[in-house]
Design a protein around this nucleic acid. Structure first.
Lengths: 124, 124
DNA sequence: CCGTATCCTTAACGATACTG
DNA sequence: CAGTATCGTTAAGGATACGG
């Protein structure tokens, strides 16, 4: 079966393969890990510090998922002590671009959103 | 306290207010509901059909959250039978733009991602 | 038609302890 | 250093029934 034979992906369709993929990318930790790798290659412990609040378990799990999806590359440098570098693949870089735009827009919109929440909660 | 006094929002900080907001926007249903409203105003039942697989409960809850965040506007038309229209606010429109870019990019990347997954699963 | 309330099941998550 | 294993807790979600 060639790619051309596949129906076009549609996130609105219940069983479309894009749904779980989208979750991996936009989920609680996926988006932050991808964004953390946008500028540069990083080690496990660096990511752990940068993505504040993530547990070792979730970081490990998130990185594995993103690697499986072909967004993140994992490179083991055989040294003592062990040293592992994580970086974005070409696909990862393409996808992180609109993601960064979204994160940045959300950040600058936070004051406006907080104001909306307060106003909303006040009137009820 | 004026906006200028607030520290800049940073999604990487554990307790930053942007974290839950980001979840509302990029979560399992939030992103799809926002995207469904990108082109036009829609009714509850229309959204329910369009966002395939969402339950009434989750659609209701998602719309409430997005309304509270100031991204979605809810308009009740007092008629019988009742009629409710959902639309994006100005802020909603701004945020949905990079979101649509991301969704669309994920959709076209699905074949590449599936291939990566198969290759990854094969070699272990 | 547009939801909310209730109940229940499952999946996500965090903390901790431990290994190559 | 870079994880994995296990356990217990919490939050998310689905199904159904009912109400405005």
């Amino acid at each position: 079966m060639r790619t051309a034979d596949l129906p076009e992906a549609n996130v609105f369709a219940r069983d479309c393969a894009s749904r779980p993929v989208l979750q991996n990318i936009t989920g609680r930790w996926g988006a932050l890990v991808l964004a953390a790798l946008a500028d540069d290659t990083h080690r496990f412990s660096e990511l752990r510090r940068h993505v504040d609040g993530i547990s070792e378990r979730m970081l490990s799990q998130t990185l594995q998922t993103l690697e499986r999806d072909g967004l993140v590359h994992r490179e083991v440098l055989t040294s003592i002590p062990p040293h592992v570098e994580y970086s974005l693949t070409g696909l990862g870089h393409r996808i992180v671009t609109p993601l960064l735009a979204l994160l940045s827009l959300v950040e600058v919109s936070v004051p406006e959103i907080i104001a909306a929440q307060i106003e909303h909660d006040r009137s009820r």
